[in-house]
């Protein structure tokens, strides 16, 4: 049994009196791919942001191995190096080229040698098919290309776990695939990841475990086949139905029946 890399215990997140996340607990094992799904506003993005303390929490604990992640904690910058995060809107640094975006943190934060970091960055860029763009500025890239650079930027820090926050939500459909392929590739390599996404087919294909969150609580949790084929809870069923159009075609069929009946 692989060891637990990330432990979340009774996490509570509030904005003033508004409870966003209520008593969330789960563990992530080394090499596991967790996909978090749920309706928008359910708190799934907030959960990811809590894990690297971009949001302070009001209760509970988060541990990366044996170290507690805490907003304002003394070793927070050190811990964040071990947690990679990719955002929905890429958030590359606009004043730096692609290669500078990737190498800045390893060089300044981890104090690694430029040669070594650049070599690694180039190898990673090559892997995502963007080596020839290394001297471009982010504004010269498409959304899908920017997101792949953002993934490489996170990877180059050698994080123990990667957090993906709706990384394809801002992309045109034809660019979604090129980003998802990179993530699938990383999963095959055995990287530990937590992925928040609305791409249900992708979730089903990549997840080792699916966590369904609604109104700030974990409603259902399980293997992807079980969750997508036969969800146990009403809420999960209802949520998954919003991604299918079966009842739409049924309604249309019913409508045309009633029209032909009245004729």
């Amino acid at each position: 049994m692989a060891e637990d890399l990330l432990k979340i215990e009774h996490l509570v997140k509030k904005y003033e009196d508004n409870t966003i996340l209520n008593d969330i607990s789960f563990n992530v094992k080394q090499g596991e791919v967790i996909v978090i799904v749920g309706p928008s506003g359910c708190g799934k993005s907030t959960l990811l942001r809590c894990i690297n303390a971009l949001e302070p929490i009001q209760g509970g604990h988060i541990y990366l191995k044996d170290d507690e992640v805490m907003a304002g904690g003394a070793n927070l910058a050190k811990l964040r190096q071990r947690i990679g995060m990719v955002f929905q809107s890429y958030e590359l640094f606009p004043h730096l080229t692609v290669i500078e975006n990737i190498t800045l943190a390893p060089m300044k934060v981890q104090k690694r040698a430029r040669d070594e970091v650049e070599k690694e960055a180039e190898a990673l860029l090559k892997r995502v098919g963007l080596l020839e763009k290394k001297n471009y500025y982010p504004r010269e890239l498409s959304g899908g290309q920017k997101q792949r650079v953002a993934i490489v930027r996170a990877l180059c820090m050698h994080p123990e776990i990667l957090l993906f926050d709706e990384v394809t939500a801002a992309l045109d459909p034809e660019m979604v695939r090129e980003v998802l392929d990179v993530i699938v590739d990383l999963a095959a390599e055995g990287k530990t990841m937590m992925i928040v996404t609305h791409e249900m087919q992708f979730a089903k294909a990549i997840a080792d475990r699916v966590i369904f969150i609604d109104s700030g609580s974990i409603v259902e949790e399980g293997a992807p086949e079980a969750f997508f084929e036969s969800p146990k809870t009403e809420r999960a069923k209802k949520f998954l139905q919003t991604f299918t159009f079966e009842d739409v075609s049924k309604r249309r069929a019913a409508a045309s029946d009633s029209i032909s009946a009245s004729e």
Binding site: L54, A77, A105, V109, R153, A154, M157
Partner: peptide
């Protein structure tokens, strides 16, 4: 604000 966040997420102080 996101520029601060993406920098801090990379471990910058």
């Amino acid at each position: 604000k996101h520029q601060y966040e993406s920098a801090e997420a990379l471990g910058f102080t």
